[in-house]
Design a protein around this nucleic acid. Structure first.
Lengths: 240, 240
DNA sequence: ACAGCGGCTGAAAGTTGTCTGAGAAAGTAC
DNA sequence: GTACTTTCTCAGACAACTTTCAGCCGCTGT
């Protein structure tokens, strides 16, 4: 069957996101990468702008920094929902003292991630919330590639039917590889997506984790994780 | 092997609720989480609005704050019942003198919770009242998972046939775990649902109570309460 | 063939998350 | 009031996980 290499973009779901964040750097990071991930992204940099943007664009989900210059995140949500909108939310919160005092973020099917976060973490949450709230139909929480299975909800991983235990970073890396199966990923790219955006270490950590993953989930034939020397890594079935 | 993961939402009963509460934050808290719990929720923020909303929407149950800007809860109920409606009520009340006045009113199958309450507490009451009043097609008051049994009415808990004594919080936590069996619950999520909404402490209390529960109900094989490091807890049968 | 680069991996150090015992604080019963 | 239960906090121990480092191996190009 040689090659087919459906060179598709990750193509989430074409879901419409509204990203609300006052820090220009983070906003840029988010909107660029969420767009690349296949979302239809609009943005706002203040609470009041967010409320009206939500009215006009009626997004499927809002990514919302809780700390905003004018209104805080809770007010924004309250105003949005007073207008009859039932949009689910993924909150962004800082890990400072205020973090403990923030409660009620997981209600109504919403979720939150603390800064600094990794892009994989955020997109995983977004997808999970969309999955939960897009009522009724599909629930594809299980990624499958060859005889590798990864359940995003229960965090279970199987290789050739065998249950495998992964650490959090191993899990995130494997999910990233599976979401991008058949696509070559450079170490820099992996670092940017799987590690938190403030990580200042060396590429070598990716090599280390690839090594851990190989030992745990790629210790049987056929090998699925391949190194392209000087280029990166790719998850694919060996050529026949 | 692999999967079973009954991917159901908590899906209460599609019952129609009318929530009456003047505090915008609490109203948002209630409507978001009750909706997500599967109820069909409408809201009102004053006594007079409540009376007409009850006429129009004819809900199966009313969640009613006793302290309202115009009419108080008692008046609301009186007017509703003058109109011939015999809708059951769960009152929300502050822990003050009115608590006693409520007691007299709850003889007729109604119930009340005192502020601040936990969402588990409230939904448990709602479900209990609905169970009692929708006679005929009885809803089961007994939760069962593996050899764990929990009776919501008598508050009895059995593990492997053995009776186990739990404190109120232990009971609520276990019920929450059982209602969400096979679903991974973060500590934040547990805190948001099982603890009162004004709790300002830290996550560690969840760890403590998980520890208590394990000692009391998970001290035999197979272990059912599992830790997912960095993610949360899950009630499930061990991997096959 | 050899030098040099890139990648692999074992080991060790550093960090973080979870569990649990002890006890203070708050609540309840008698 | 006292005795008892329950809730909540704290800190130490421990285990799991992350990150770094250094040496080795093998590929690649000349």
């Amino acid at each position: 069957m040689g090659h087919m290499a459906a060179q598709t973009q990750p193509k989430q779901s074409e879901a419409k996101l509204l990203v609300v964040e006052d820090d220009a750097n983070i906003l840029e990071l988010l909107s660029a990468s969420l767009r690349f991930a296949g979302f239809d992204v609009s943005t706002a940099t203040s609470g009041s702008a967010a409320v009206s943007a939500a009215k006009n664009a009626s997004p499927d989900l809002v990514v919302l920094d809780v700390m905003l210059p004018d209104l805080d995140g809770f007010e924004v949500i309250r105003l949005m929902r007073e207008g009859g909108q039932r949009t689910p939310v993924v909150f962004l919160t800082a890990r400072d003292g205020t973090e403990d005092k923030i409660r009620g973020l997981t209600l109504g099917g919403d979720d939150y991630v603390t800064k600094p976060f990794s892009l994989e973490e955020l997109t995983a949450r977004i997808r999970a919330v969309l999955r939960r709230t897009s009522q009724g139909d599909e629930a594809p929480s299980r990624l499958v590639f060859a005889d590798l299975e990864l359940d995003e909800e229960t965090h279970e991983v199987y290789r050739a039917g065998q249950r495998v235990q992964l650490s959090p970073t191993e899990f995130k890396l494997l999910r990233y590889l599976m979401l991008n199966a058949n696509r070559v990923l450079s170490k820099a790219q992996i670092l940017d997506h799987v590690w938190k955006y403030d990580f200042r270490g060396d590429d070598n950590i990716v090599e280390s984790y690839i090594s851990y993953l190989r030992r745990k989930v790629d210790n049987v034939q056929p090998r699925l994780i391949h190194t392209l020397r000087g280029v990166g890594y790719v998850l694919r079935k060996p050529a026949v």
